[in-house]
Amino acid sequence: MAKMCVAIAAVLAVTALLQTSAAQTVHVVGDSLGWLVPPGGPIAYETWVDLQTFVVGDVLVFNFITGEQDVARVTKEAFNSCNSTNPIFLETTGPFNYTLDAAGEYYFIGTMDRHCYLGQKLAINVSASAGPTPSPQAPTPTPPRGPVTYIVGDALGWLVPPGGSIAYKTWAYGKTFLVGDVLVFNFANGTQDVAVVTEEAYDSCNTTTTIAVYATSPVKYTLATVGEYFFTSTYSRHCNLGQKLAINVTASSSATPPSTTTTPTPSSNPSSSVTSPVAGGPSAPPPQSSAPARAVLGFSSTLLLIALAVVH
């Protein structure tokens, strides 16, 4: 009987280990921005954190140039005051991988010069586990609204952003784009343009084939259909350097059909006021595979059978 208990305990331990390993996620801090003084202050890393879920066992990757940046883990009080006098640890060699080995709050800052004060700081909360999938809830009805005009990048405008594509990701984060809304791209004529491209071209920054290109500022682009939209520039390396925008457009919440929605006043140049040529929305994502779970269960069952055979 004692041997059986030991064998079962071993099987359960192996199963837990496999599940923990499978759940580990590597988070590259700031994505393409990396770890530096972010353009626009701490909102860049705050936005990045809002898009992540951290659990014990996950790994943070801080990408930075050795000698130009560093990363320190500090207390909450030191984080709030940007006090790097007594850090919990300090790493000066990049890139640096940090494993989240316990649940709770973690605080990181850059200690060089005024880097922390300028926004090089990161606060995250780590859960013990990913937890069960929450039960689906009925969506809250969105009150009707008319078309909204969005100035892409706000005061930044449409250009190669400092710090890379995180600037436009930050701008788009939290915004709701509906059919009938208008994007306004402000740029200096002759130095930029706006290209509508496919997702593949967006990801690879390949502007050889485009859906449409607009070269006269300001470009007023009406979102006419539901789905994903991808914008970049055809100018050399502008896309690679971060001049790219991806958004998702949902159906209009207005009681008025999109075809009767009043569009903003067009610009004096007819070519600068356009309606999206993109048709249809994105296909539904494929159902998540349960193969890893079945594999773990099957492996555990095999170990259990072996253990029982040993006992007998």
Rank of each mutant, 00 (worst) to 15 (best):
M1D: 12
G34A: 06
W35M: 04
W35R: 08
P38K: 10
G41M: 04
W48L: 05
D50K: 15
T53Y: 10
T53E: 13
D70R: 11
R73G: 10
E77S: 14
A78H: 10
T92D: 12
F96I: 02
T99N: 11
D101S: 15
D101Y: 03
E105N: 14
I124K: 06
S127Y: 09
A128R: 10
P139Q: 09
T142A: 13
I151E: 10
A155H: 02
V160W: 02
V160L: 02
P162I: 04
G164W: 06
Y168I: 01
T170M: 11
W171Y: 06
T176R: 14
D181H: 00
F185C: 04
N186T: 11
F187R: 02
A195W: 00
E199Q: 15
Y202T: 04
N206E: 02
V213A: 03
Y214N: 08
A215S: 14
A215P: 01
T216Q: 07
S217L: 06
P218C: 04
V226H: 03
T232H: 06
G242C: 05
N248E: 15
A255C: 12
T256I: 09
P258Y: 00
T263G: 02
P266K: 01
S268P: 00
S273K: 00
A284T: 11
P286Y: 09
P292R: 07
R294K: 11
F299N: 01
A309T: 12
V310P: 02
